[in-house]
Design a protein around this nucleic acid. Structure first.
Length: 580
RNA sequence: GGCGAGGUAGCUCAGUUGGUUAGAGCGCAUGAUUCAUAAUCAUGAGGUCUCGGGUUCAACCCCCGAUCUCGCUACCA
């Protein structure tokens, strides 16, 4: 028994000591059939950006890769509907998505796309290697074919009457009325969801990745070695593994995508879920010729940021692919988030129930960090959360303006007033001064530990506590009173308040980079490193500060009401469309 | 239908292996304060931990059942 515990402790020690020299951070590839909305941001891109910015500030070797996922059936349908080519569809959305990420300060080292030549080459080579090594199973099956649209139909794109409950409009894979799992051939009176034609059965050959061959490995790797993964991620993996893995098709009959690179595969492309995660690899190749060390050196830590709907692909399928290929690292963690709702309803691209990033950026110029703050503070880390415009307003006005912005403004205005905008000299410290300084040091550790454990909401709260400590410090020391009798003591107080402000500029950078930049400008300083957080010698005595400005503005009711009206309009437009 | 995750204060969320009085922020109330964007600071009120059983000296936590939300269910992405 004693030995057992000893062994566990030793094991923990080794895991903690596992010394990663570099990091590879991936963010789920947005699907290029629509713009990015707040759900994507809260679930994936804000957490991954905070994580990456934090690591960079600490001077770590880290790259953050992403790109547009541009293949698959929905894009071809959208193209057909609009009378344009699939390439035109993805060109349009790739441009919108990429530009909105840039404006929002999501700091990818590269934002690539799966229609790029590099990606086509990489994915083809990947497939061909597995094919040549006999890692696939070939199987010919009968599949529904739409004679009008002249294409095979995925199960999702066949509708008909449910054989179990008789409901109309059941899908080929599932009836949403009774919840039964179906196979397309069971449907009564099947119809193509694309053309409405009656589909016919036709033979087709496909390649399958035998996940069952990797089951033992995956079971041990996830269930034994990654017990620290989030409950939703671990639970879903366990569910799949306990059910027994089956071969999974990795090709599709479609004319949009990466052609299956073997003889006799005319009209077949790689399944998007086979090619999309390889997109992380191609993106890295597009970034650097030195890409292999990020994917193949064992001292690289790979982390996939995704939403909960992608867990299986990132924890089971992609790792199985990487292992089948050989030579690649597997992810160290996959911190999948839950979903964000909007005003109590599911976000929906097709129903236009969303707050679109590119529209937000136009309608709230200069307020990138407000959205970053609100979405992080309310991120769906453990369960689905709700975004409301009232909450957005409240968090801006009573947290960012009242606590953060107000503290900074107080410290700077007092310095202007009493010390001609120069950092005053710090004299002897009181116990309260020392206590306050200790609190700042303690917050550093809290923020670090929370970010490293993917608890970004809590990390953000701790960052805000820095401003709270500052406000309390000023309230308790009352420099505006002390200034009447004791300028030396006033100097010490304001020195400490300014050092806290400088600490804030460091601590807020991963979460609110625009605010950090503004703060640095106001302090007239170049960016600090993370290691300076907790220090009270960041600003040297007599350093002249820059011009003070307000960090955050109040958001008035009108702006919020305009957004609510906009959502109402989307709702009625949608209701009308349904009636027609 | 099966499986997974979740349901804790008015709102948004914490709650470590079961252990005294279940915590935080916002909101609300009262007081203090006036350097600051009516911003801050202190104090306080506010809980049948979704519901019903069970195990235990002791349950938000473990077990059984019900219920609601979301996800997955292998060709939607």
């Amino acid at each position: 028994m004693y030995e057992f515990y000893y062994l566990c402790t030793l094991l923990d020690y080794l895991i903690i000591m596992k010394n990663f020299k570099r990091y590879l951070v991936t963010s789920a590839l947005p699907y290029a059939n629509g713009p990015v909305h707040i759900g994507h941001l809260a679930g994936v891109y804000i957490p991954s950006d905070i994580y990456t910015r934090y690591l960079r500030l600490r001077g770590r070797d880290v790259i953050h890769v992403c790109g547009s996922d541009e293949h698959g059936v929905p894009i071809t349908i959208k193209a057909k509907k609009e009378g344009v080519t699939p390439q035109q569809v993805v060109d349009r959305y790739n441009a919108i998505i990429k530009e909105s990420f840039r404006r929002f300060g999501i700091s990818f080292d590269i934002y690539s796309r799966t229609s790029s030549p590099t990606h086509h080459q990489t994915a083809s080579d990947f497939f061909r290697k597995l094919y040549n090594e006999g890692q696939f199973i070939e199987q010919t099956t009968e599949q529904y074919f739409d004679p009008e649209a002249n294409q095979f139909l995925a199960d999702r794109y066949i509708t008909g009457t449910c054989p179990k409950c008789g409901a109309e409009g059941a899908y080929g894979d599932q009836c949403e009325k009774c919840g039964s799992t179906l196979s397309p051939t069971e449907l009564i009176n099947p119809r193509s969801a694309i053309s409405g034609a009656q589909p016919i059965l036709k033979q087709t050959k496909h390649w399958f990745l035998p996940l069952d061959k990797h089951e033992d490995f995956l079971r041990n790797w996830i269930l034994e070695q990654h017990k620290e993964w989030k409950p939703n991620v671990y639970g879903q993996c366990k569910s799949w593994l306990d059910g027994g893995l089956m071969p999974r098709a990795v090709s599709r009959d479609l004319d949009w995508g990466i052609p299956v690179p073997v003889d006799g595969a005319q009209g077949k492309v790689l399944y998007v879920w086979f090619d999309a995660p390889i997109g992380y690899i191609s993106a890295t190749k597009d970034l650097t010729t030195d890409w292999e060390k990020y994917w193949k050196s064992e001292d690289t830590k790979m982390v996939h940021f995704i939403g909960k709907d992608n867990i299986v692909f990132h924890c089971i399928v992609f790792p199985a692919m990487l292992r089948a290929h050989g030579g690649y690292n597997l992810p160290e963690n996959v911190p999948a988030n839950e979903f964000l709702n909007l005003e109590g309803q599911k976000i929906s691209t097709s129903r236009n129930w969303a707050v679109w990033l590119h529209e937000y950026l136009d309608e709230f110029p200069g307020k990138e960090d407000v959205l970053r703050y609100v979405l992080c503070a309310n991120a769906p880390e453990t369960k689905d959360n709700d975004f409301t415009w009232r909450d957005f307003q409240a968090r801006n006005n009573s947290e960012l303006v009242a606590i953060f912005g107000n503290f900074v403004n107080r410290a700077l205005v007092l310095t202007q007033k009493y010390f001609n905008n120069q950092v005053p000299k710090r004299g002897p410290l009181t116990d309260f001064d020392k206590q306050t300084m200790e609190q700042v040091v303690a917050l550093k550790t809290e923020i670090e530990q929370n970010i490293e454990n993917y608890k970004f909401r809590e990390a953000l709260r701790e960052m805000m506590n820095l401003a709270r400590v500052g406000n309390k410090y000023l309230a308790d020391t009352e420099p505006w009173k002390v200034a009447k009798t004791d300028m030396e003591r006033t100097a010490t107080i304001l020195n400490i308040a300014l050092q806290i402000t400088a600490n804030l500029a460091i601590a807020c950078e991963p979460f609110m980079p625009f605010t950090s930049d503004k703060l640095l400008m106001m302090l007239a300083k170049e960016p600090f490193g993370w290691e300076q957080l907790g220090s009270f010698d960041i600003l040297e005595t007599a350093h002249t500060l820059g011009k003070a400005q307000l960090l955050f503005d109040k958001i008035e009711d009108e702006a919020i009401e305009a957004q609510l009206l906009k959502l109402e309009a989307a709702k009625s437009a949608n209701a009308e469309a349904t009636v027609e």
